[in-house]
Amino acid sequence: MLKVENLVVNYGYISALRGISFEVKEGEIITLIGANGAGKTTTLVSVSNLIKKESGKVIFKSQDITQTPPHKIVKMGMCHVPEGRKIFPELTVYENMISGTFGNPALSKEKINQLIEKQFTLFPRLKERRNQAGGTLSGGEQQMLAIARGLMMDPDIIMLDEPSLGLAPIIVEEIFELILRIRENGKTILLIEQNASMSLSIADRGYVLENGVVTLTGTGKELLVNEEVKKAYLGA
């Protein structure tokens, strides 16, 4: 469904990505793990075309989207939940969710209402707070709102950038359970995480990033027991 080939990205003189390739197939949960500065977030923002790519190719649904502007990529059914949530703080929870539907103009009013109900069953806490300003939610609730906003466009693939960032362990578990539920609803998921043990345990396949290159790849289980991964990311 999504294929990235030899992606190279430079920030000024610093090379952030030095030729990354990976593939996400329909219905999979794929995770990219790596330490700070390995290039995880850079990979996602360059797939969404928020930054300039030096070279490489991004193919989504067998179309080349390397140079497509971000809002058009979204309209093709790719949803990107950015790092640090980035919800709209002065819009209410409900308005934040409506803003998620801009990415899919084909949605009818009924379908939007259905989607909202669906998100409210997935995230019951958002329902309680639907008329509250987004900025007043707690960190975990904001993350849920960011994911819900992403799901409102009924995307085919959802890319999550560090959903566990800065959250209490119990909330992190809740979020990972949600990710599994989202997959059950038929979405493809590309997950970027520092929390390697959690993300590998739910992922079908994983890629390990180091200094802007993929150094290891395998199924989630393989990577979980891999000695190098254990040493570097799992603290064992």
Partner: peptide, 24 residues
Amino acid sequence: TKWGIALRSVSQNREAAALVGINV
């Protein structure tokens, strides 16, 4: 209106607005 939500979301966070599919 939805139009208004689009305008206000652009005013609050341009990057996030682009990511929800708004032509910023």
